[in-house]
Amino acid sequence: MKKWIVILFALLPSLVMAAGAKVHLDQANNDLSDKASLQNGAKLFMNYCFGCHSTQYQRYERVANDLGIPLDLMKENLIFDPKAKVGSLMENAIPDKSAAKWFGAPPPDLTLVARVRGVDWLYTYLRSFYADPSRPFGVNNIIFPSVGMPHVLEELQGIPHPVYETKIVDGEEHKVVVRTETNGRGELNREEYDNAVRDLVNFLEYSGDPVKLERHALGWWVMAFLVIFTVVVVFLKKEYWRDVH
């Protein structure tokens, strides 16, 4: 049973992406080696996302060390819970019951969201909100219809309005939202907002796999060792079998 659970967990990202294959996803093109991007992403996450979503499988100290953030700056600017210590897990203070009452369900932990959804999905999702007065929080999302969360980055982007196109679905015409346009009143212009979202997604990708770069670097050394070891084994085989032939 455990074996099948492990296999299912390993295949989950592929299954999720396959289910959303009909949706066009913009490429995030983020860079895990860009410390400035990761630092800005951590700042954006803590200021705009952490009020509802936690990353409970991370610790503040580990994030600070990995991202090159001095511990005193981490304590002063990115730890908002007065009871939390620098070595604490990054858990928010919102009770699950209250969150379920306000949002319909407790907001999920986001430590592994980039591994489950994919970075391109997250990048497109955070840039696909649009104003929809019929929704409880006044917004909807192109790739996540009937989304149950507010557009928390609205003050940065401005109010995004939907742009419709008429498409034929099952022989009938339907108006569908294909993109958004903002009112231009956000703190950032379009390019700056895209870069900010890319930084946020970069941080979430790091959160899901903090040792990804180290693992990839180690992989090259392992491959080099295997190549050298193979050459040695071939020569040893020839030496041992020379007299036999």
Rank of each mutant, 00 (worst) to 15 (best):
Trp4Met: 13
Val6Phe: 12
Ile7Asp: 05
Leu12Cys: 06
Ser14Cys: 10
Val16Cys: 03
Val16Asn: 06
Ala18Arg: 05
Ala19Trp: 11
Val23Asp: 12
Asp26Leu: 09
Ala28Lys: 04
Asn29His: 11
Asn29Ala: 07
Asp31Met: 05
Lys35Leu: 13
Ala36Gln: 14
Ala36Thr: 13
Asn40Glu: 15
Cys49His: 03
Phe50Pro: 01
Gly51Gln: 10
Ser54Pro: 10
Thr55Asp: 04
Gln58Lys: 13
Val63Pro: 01
Asn65Phe: 09
Gly68Lys: 10
Leu71Cys: 04
Leu71Phe: 06
Leu71Lys: 14
Met74Thr: 06
Asn77Leu: 13
Asn77Gln: 14
Leu78His: 10
Ile79His: 00
Phe80Arg: 14
Asp81Cys: 01
Asp81Met: 00
Lys83Tyr: 04
Ala84Val: 01
Lys85Ser: 14
Val86Cys: 02
Gly87Arg: 05
Met90Leu: 03
Met90Ile: 12
Asn92Asp: 03
Asn92Met: 05
Ile94Leu: 15
Asp96Gln: 09
Lys97Tyr: 11
Lys97Met: 09
Ser98Cys: 07
Ala100Cys: 05
Ala105Leu: 08
Pro107Asp: 08
Pro108Arg: 15
Val113Ala: 11
Val116Cys: 01
Gly118Phe: 00
Tyr123Ile: 01
Leu126Phe: 14
Phe129Asp: 04
Tyr130Asn: 04
Ala131His: 14
Asp132Lys: 07
Asp132Phe: 02
Pro133Ala: 14
Arg135Gly: 04
Pro136Leu: 04
Gly138Asn: 06
Asn140Ile: 07
Ile142Glu: 00
Phe144Trp: 14
Met149Tyr: 10
His151Gly: 06
Glu154Leu: 02
Glu155Gln: 10
Gln157Asn: 13
Pro160Ala: 06
Glu165Arg: 15
Thr166Ala: 05
Val169Glu: 13
Gly171Asp: 02
Glu172Val: 10
Glu172Ile: 05
His174Gln: 09
Val176Glu: 15
Val177His: 04
Val178His: 12
Arg179His: 07
Thr180Gln: 03
Arg185Tyr: 09
Arg185Ile: 11
Arg185Lys: 15
Glu187Val: 14
Glu187Lys: 15
Leu188Glu: 12
Asn189Val: 06
Arg190Val: 11
Glu192Ser: 10
Asn195Ile: 11
Ala196Met: 12
Val197Gln: 03
Val201Ser: 00
Phe203Cys: 02
Leu204Arg: 04
Ser207Asn: 02
Ser207Gln: 06
Lys212Met: 08
Glu214Thr: 15
His216Ala: 07
Leu218Met: 11
Gly219Met: 05
Gly219Ile: 01
Gly219Tyr: 02
Trp221Asp: 08
Val222Arg: 05
Met223Tyr: 13
Met223Lys: 13
Ala224Gly: 07
Phe229Cys: 08
Thr230Ala: 12
Val233Phe: 03
Val234Thr: 06
Leu236Ser: 01
Lys238Ala: 09
Glu239Arg: 15
Tyr240Trp: 13
Arg242Gln: 15
Arg242Lys: 15
Val244Lys: 11
